[in-house]
Simulated assay, not measured.
Amino acid sequence: MSVDTTAAAAGRSPAPADTEGVVAMFRRVLEVDEVSADSDFFLLGGDSLVATRVLSAVARTYGVELTFADFLDAPTPERLAAKIAAAR
């Protein structure tokens, strides 16, 4: 895990990691309305290719670059938000 400097280089601060932000990210990427804090990304129909879209969104939004292994370890919005916060 490493902190991405893209947001800082663009002159903006990364957003604070929060569960609701990650829930919204899952909804957008998966095109599913029924996502809660403990919804499993893969049980909602996500796969490894779509997970890379979430990881890209995490990097853009929160300034943190997580690995796919990180995502596998934290496939719910709540756990992913915690992992983002810990990486900062």
Rank of each mutant, 00 (worst) to 15 (best):
M1C: 05
M1H: 11
S2Q: 10
S2P: 00
S2M: 04
S2T: 09
V3L: 04
D4L: 06
D4N: 08
T5V: 09
T5E: 10
T6F: 01
T6W: 00
A7V: 02
A8T: 14
A8D: 12
A8H: 10
A9Y: 10
A10F: 10
A10V: 08
G11L: 11
G11Y: 12
R12F: 10
R12T: 12
R12D: 08
S13E: 13
S13C: 07
P14Q: 11
A15E: 14
P16L: 05
A17T: 08
A17G: 03
A17L: 11
A17P: 12
D18K: 14
D18H: 13
T19W: 04
T19M: 03
E20P: 13
G21P: 05
V22N: 01
V23P: 05
V23A: 06
A24K: 14
M25K: 08
M25E: 01
M25D: 01
M25S: 06
M25Q: 08
F26V: 07
R27K: 15
R28Q: 11
V29L: 01
V29M: 03
L30A: 05
E31V: 03
E31A: 06
V32M: 04
D33G: 06
D33H: 07
E34L: 03
E34T: 09
V35F: 05
A37G: 01
S39M: 02
S39K: 08
S39T: 11
S39I: 00
D40W: 05
F42S: 09
F42C: 07
L43N: 01
L43W: 01
L43P: 00
G45V: 08
G45M: 05
G45D: 06
G45C: 07
G46C: 05
D47W: 01
D47Y: 07
D47Q: 04
D47T: 06
L49N: 09
V50R: 14
A51P: 00
A51W: 04
A51M: 04
A51S: 14
R53V: 02
R53N: 09
R53G: 04
R53P: 06
V54Y: 07
V54L: 11
V54H: 11
V54W: 10
L55E: 03
L55K: 04
S56P: 03
S56Q: 13
A57S: 15
A57V: 02
A57L: 13
A57Q: 13
R60L: 13
R60M: 06
T61H: 10
T61Y: 06
T61G: 10
Y62P: 04
Y62H: 15
G63T: 01
V64L: 10
V64W: 04
V64N: 02
V64K: 04
E65T: 06
E65R: 14
E65H: 14
E65D: 14
L66C: 13
L66V: 05
T67G: 14
T67F: 11
F68R: 12
F68P: 08
A69Q: 15
A69W: 07
A69P: 02
D70P: 12
L72I: 11
L72M: 15
D73A: 15
D73L: 13
P77D: 12
P77I: 15
L80H: 06
L80N: 04
L80E: 09
A82L: 15
A82V: 13
A82K: 15
K83S: 14
A85P: 02
A85D: 15
R88A: 12
